[in-house]
Simulated assay, not measured.
Amino acid sequence: MSWRVVNHDELLEATGASPYVDVAVPADAVAIVGEHGWAAMHPWRPSGHWGGAALVAPGAPPEAESQALAELLALAPDTPLEWFSTSAGRQLAAPPGFLVDGSGRWDFLSTRVDVPPAGAVFPGDLELLELDDATDAAELEAFGRAHNTDFEGFPGHGFSVLWLGLRDASSALVAIGGMHLLATGTPHLSGIVVDRAQRGRGIGRALTVALTRRALDRCGVSTLGVFSSNAPAISLYHSLGYRTHHRFHTRVLSAL
């Protein structure tokens, strides 16, 4: 297999204007294309946290993604790579000097479509508030972990530019959700959690609508990631106009 180095515009053209490349892959990405597909390494957030992906045709050789990753690392050997993704069901061997230290399967979605006004109606006993990523970090983390063991909002890390929360009459949190920025500046929703006892009231839908509108007002596009196994959440996001672009199998990489 052979790969050639491309810039961002060439990568976008080679991928048929992939929404992931368009909104999540910044101009300083290290990118290659070949006869079977494409691959890139890039920062995920403005602060770094490098990751990447190799997406190839279904009939590509099983080692295609592993070879693509090796090629990328040869082009940028000092890249602080933390994770790398393939399509679901594809193989990936740890490159020399790295250990696969965990994995996850998630879907990447985005929308540019405004959500229906009716979807933003909150139950009358709840108040929508902005919360602070630093001063409210402990409360956000405790609530998120209590109601979702897979909570990945990362409050207090400086990743979020916005947190919205819903409190009941006693000021107790019943739902939270955050907005990060990708390295491209694109808003990325994260950490949306509803109190288990309050689910089924439309709270998650209304909170997602509020966050999506903030993202669309900021940038004209909103993105999010969701575990591939979370069918109810994916159905909700689709009902609000989000579309799934890729189903990733991501491996966490640790340098030896």
Rank of each mutant, 00 (worst) to 15 (best):
T250F: 08
R213Y: 03
V226C: 05
G156V: 06
I32W: 03
I192T: 08
A27V: 15
G48D: 10
E141F: 08
M179R: 09
C219M: 12
W38K: 01
R45Q: 14
A24V: 14
P61H: 09
D136W: 04
G225H: 08
E71M: 04
I192Y: 04
V194Y: 00
E127C: 09
R199K: 09
G177H: 00
E63S: 11
L75R: 07
V56K: 02
M1F: 15
L126I: 01
V209Y: 03
P19V: 09
L81T: 02
E130N: 09
E13Y: 15
D101V: 10
E71D: 08
D195G: 04
H157Q: 13
P19C: 13
L73E: 00
A27L: 12
A169I: 05
F84M: 09
S66I: 13
D101I: 08
L126K: 02
P116M: 12
L12R: 03
L181Q: 11
V30L: 08
L92C: 10
V226S: 01
A134F: 13
A54P: 03
D22F: 15
A74G: 12
L99H: 15
A88K: 13
W44V: 07
V252W: 06
G52W: 01
Y20K: 14
G34Y: 02
S239I: 07
G165I: 03
R214V: 06
R243G: 03
C219H: 11
G59T: 12
L109G: 04
V193G: 04
S160E: 06
V113Y: 03
L126G: 00
S239E: 08
P58N: 11
S239V: 07
D22T: 15
A60I: 09
P43Q: 07
L72T: 00
P123N: 04
A70N: 08
R251S: 05
